[in-house]
Computed example of a mutant assay.
Amino acid sequence: MRYGILVLICFAVTLLSCKKDDDGGIVEVPPSLLSDVAPEDDEKIREFLNTHFYNYEEFKNPPEGFDYKIVIDTIAGENANKEPMMEDAKTITFDVSSSHLGLSAGEENIKHTLYYIEARKGGGGSPTYADSTLVRYQGYLLDGTQFDESQDFSWTSISRIVARGFADGYAQMSAGTSDQIVENGDGTYNINNSGIGLVIMPSGMAYFNRSPSGLIPAYSILMFQIELGLYVENTDHDNDGIPSIQEDLNSNEYLNDDNTDVDMESSLTGLLPNYRDPDDDGDGVLTRDEIIIENGEITFPDSDGDGVPDYLDPDSN
């Protein structure tokens, strides 16, 4: 088996798996537990990384005309002496709760491990998971099935990404720089010092029990190659003056569970986590008008001295 790899962004719609009962009716199958699936996924990922290699030799010593695409093959036969991907893979662990995936199981802070390889380090800095990024990508299942591709660079951000591990993956990489953009003459362009890497995420950091397309079954481990071109440092998705990365109030590297005025919102008006809400406390005063920005520095007044800054305190006015 030999295939090239890159990344994906797609949207999930199915919440529960179903099957027919003996009478021909539909029976809802409750989702598996995160605590059961996470270690199973980790075992599968580690087995894959230990039995496959990528074209690391070409990345170390690029031949003339090399396209800087990651290519994976099985360690066997004439490739029996190749270094397994596990030797280059690095890991980072995240806490995932059932509520993050819209599940009612009540599981909290289940450890999930994301694996990544930075095949070519970019010439620029590294984005956070909350920053908007310019990427090219291609996505695969572990069996080599391709589910999506972006052949040209496109801007994406955490507000558009359902597979959480995608943003957590590119946050481990270095981007390119704008002075290395090269026009191809056909409306496309390359970034000569872009970062190129591989990310493999467990299903709990992807779509878990949902199946967003016929190509991605429930409980799928996803594998991405990401070419990271540029990024917007301190992206502010709602333009409220506070970078989105600073709106992760519980510091769990997940922005959608930080919603100060959730009790005032409804499904009719829309639930807006703080990084997408220009009025974080729902008091009718814009967040931008309840903070102070001077020389690029942000301070957070607390008018009533209760320990809660005004922009998060609806009783401060």
Rank of each mutant, 00 (worst) to 15 (best):
L114N: 10
P31D: 13
L34Q: 04
D131K: 00
E40C: 00
A218T: 06
H100T: 10
N184A: 03
I117S: 07
L222E: 13
A218F: 02
F66M: 00
K69I: 14
S251W: 02
R46G: 05
G65H: 00
P31Y: 03
I110E: 08
V232L: 10
G204L: 06
P202W: 01
N55L: 05
L255D: 04
I292K: 09
P243K: 09
E87F: 13
F48M: 11
A80E: 13
D148Y: 03
V232A: 09
F153I: 03
P314I: 05
D143S: 07
I245A: 06
I26S: 14
V135P: 01
E294W: 02
S267K: 02
E253C: 04
D263S: 13
L198G: 08
V135H: 01
E265Q: 15
P31R: 10
I298Q: 06
V7F: 11
L268V: 12
H237S: 11
L222R: 02
N252E: 11
K19L: 13
Q225G: 15
F94N: 00
G25R: 15
N209I: 06
A76I: 01
G187M: 12
F208Q: 00
G307Q: 09
V232F: 04
I221G: 11
L271R: 10
N190S: 15
T113V: 15
L249T: 04
L222N: 02
G204V: 04
T93C: 03
S194C: 15
D23L: 14
E43A: 15
N295P: 08
